[in-house]
């Protein structure tokens, strides 16, 4: 186990049980539609749209509490994070988020919520129960991507104009390390062994693999992309997801309309999957049978069979789907 090794608190262990129990059942898939100010609800078995409900202005980041009782949505243009009941879609409350919240990450314990404020060069830490702002951490210009180490001790924030991954200690809220990556870093994701951090750079066109096994984290490799017939400028990596066993890394390539499949051991690209237009964020269904991608310019989501590396379906949702989260139960 490395420094950022997996945290298995009681709450998470319970969630784990819930996963196993519910695998045979359909899950709700929530998609934030940036342009529509709605969230589309899909059924992960039939892949039918089962509901659509109105949310705040310009919904982007979307996540759920580990117990599946709260759905969090960044309403960017309302400068707030909204909390919805995933069963009734009723607005339960709002959280102070700082201006223009875009992406966030929730502690595996369900609290606190770490929010990047793109407009204010800050990461805001909010207690989701008391709604108190616990800390505001000054970071680089245009903070965007957020990730937590599996043990929850390190928070990563990427800043788009500063071109860095900031390593923030979640107990002191101090930045303990900065790693320069390529231009306009959008998203960060740890592997589950906590040996690597993947950071996508949209304009740089690369995914930096940051080695976490040495005394100091450093970029060990930069994954580049090449698709015949697609102009290099359009290969813009955004969302990143790693399978539980760390064997596969999926990277959404934005306007290239492809998801790259990367071998989690060698960090070499093994496949490109054709999805909808401007593919942005992704989420696994529990058990990782499927990966759902949001495609902002074709107003749909693509469903990828994870074992087969195949796109099996696309489903129309609202206008400009941005983020996606799958209910754990």
């Amino acid at each position: 186990m490395t420094r950022f090794g997996k945290m298995v608190p009681a709450a998470l262990a319970l969630t784990g049980l819930a996963f196993t129990a519910s695998n045979a059942w359909a899950n709700k898939v929530f998609v934030s539609n940036e342009r529509d100010n709605t969230v589309t609800v899909l059924d992960s078995e039939s892949w039918e749209v089962v509901d659509t409900f109105a949310v705040g202005n310009r919904p982007r980041g979307i996540t759920m509490s580990p117990d599946g009782t709260r759905l969090y949505v960044c309403a960017s243009d309302d400068d707030t994070v909204q909390i919805f009941d995933p069963a009734t879609y009723a607005l339960i409350g709002t959280l102070p988020s700082g201006p223009d919240p875009e992406l966030f990450v929730l502690s595996a314990l369900g609290n606190p919520l770490y929010i990047s404020n793109e407009d204010d060069n800050l990461v805001t830490v909010v207690d989701v129960n008391t709604r108190e702002v616990l800390a505001e951490v000054p970071v680089g210009v245009e903070p965007e991507g957020m990730a937590l180490s599996p043990d929850g001790t390190i928070l990563i924030n990427t800043s788009e104009t500063t071109n860095m991954a900031h390593f923030i200690d979640t107990s002191s809220y101090e930045i303990v390390h900065n790693v320069l990556v390529d231009a306009r870093p959008r998203y960060a994701e740890f592997n589950h062994a906590a040996t690597k951090l993947y950071v996508s750079a949209e304009v740089g066109g690369t995914v930096s693999v940051i080695d976490l096994t040495q005394a100091e984290p450093s970029v060990a490799k930069k994954i580049t992309f090449e698709v015949p017939g697609v102009t290099a400028e359009w290969l813009q990596p955004v969302g990143v997801r790693v399978t539980d066993d760390d064997s596969k890394v999926f990277v959404a390539l934005g306007p290239a309309n492809r998801v790259a499949v990367i071998d989690g051991k060698t960090d070499e690209v093994s496949d490109y999957l054709m999805v909808g237009q401007r593919v942005w964020q992704m989420a696994f269904t529990p058990g990782e049978k499927y990966l759902v991608t949001t495609n902002g310019n074709s107003n749909d989501v693509s469903i990828i069979d994870v074992a087969d590396n195949k796109v099996i379906k696309s489903v129309q949702v609202g206008q400009q789907p941005w983020g996606v989260v799958v209910a754990p139960n």
Partner: peptide
């Protein structure tokens, strides 16, 4: 002092001070 402590605890701290 805080910074040094944080570095020590985490065993890496380039780019500080």
């Amino acid at each position: 002092k805080l910074t040094i402590l944080a570095c020590f605890a985490l065993s890496f701290c380039a780019g500080l001070a």
